[in-house]
């Protein structure tokens, strides 16, 4: 990364689009996405890595965007919730969450979708235990988790 005054130039790609941004080196990826790029689909619930609401994919891997610095994603490909569905078609994870009523207030949903997508991308037929483990850092206060597990199982089947 190169610096201009107290700012740094961040080159990375978000949802398939390349960006060259002047960012504060101490602004987290969460802040860069929400405030610099106005991609507010990425939520925040604690900003300390304790709730999972801000999960995005960095080169396909779920990361807590509240604990990632711009310098750590230089050259990376970021996927946020805005980049999951294909045009008007929901991703199978999104479709399954909808069909199973596995979202209520919807605030944990973006993180849940991205964690689930990453799981199914690497393991399309996870067991219930594997689903629970993979999503165990994503807190939800509405659903009781039960329907999310069912939805992710179904989404895996749909993707297979």
């Amino acid at each position: 990364m190169s610096s201009i005054g107290s700012r740094e130039i961040l080159r990375f790609s978000v949802n398939g689009r390349s960006h060259e941004l002047l960012v504060k080196p101490y602004a987290t990826l969460l802040e860069v996405l929400r405030e610099d790029l106005r991609l507010t689909g990425t939520k925040h619930g604690c900003e300390a890595g304790e709730c999972g609401a801000c999960v995005v994919l960095v080169d396909g891997t779920p990361q807590l965007s509240c604990l990632v610095l711009p310098g750590q994603v230089e050259g990376s490909e970021i996927t946020t919730i805005e980049g999951v569905s294909d045009g008007g078609t929901l991703h199978p994870v999104q479709q399954a969450l909808m069909d199973h009523g596995a979202l209520q207030c919807g605030y944990c949903t973006p993180g849940m979708v991205l964690s689930s997508k990453a799981l199914l991308d690497s393991n399309p037929t996870p067991s219930r235990e594997e689903i629970k483990e993979a999503l165990s850092g994503n807190l939800c206060r509405c659903t009781g988790y039960v329907s999310i597990i069912e939805a992710v199982e179904d989404a895996g089947r749909a993707m297979a």
């Binding site: 689909g41 569905s85 969450l97």
Partner: peptide
């Protein structure tokens, strides 16, 4: 009937603007 909620899609694609998303 067992139907999806009417506001599901906006929440699933990150478009729903919660209070902190309004600027």
């Amino acid at each position: 009937k067992s139907l999806p909620r009417v506001d599901a899609v906006g929440k699933l694609i990150g478009l729903t603007a919660y209070a902190d998303d309004i600027e």
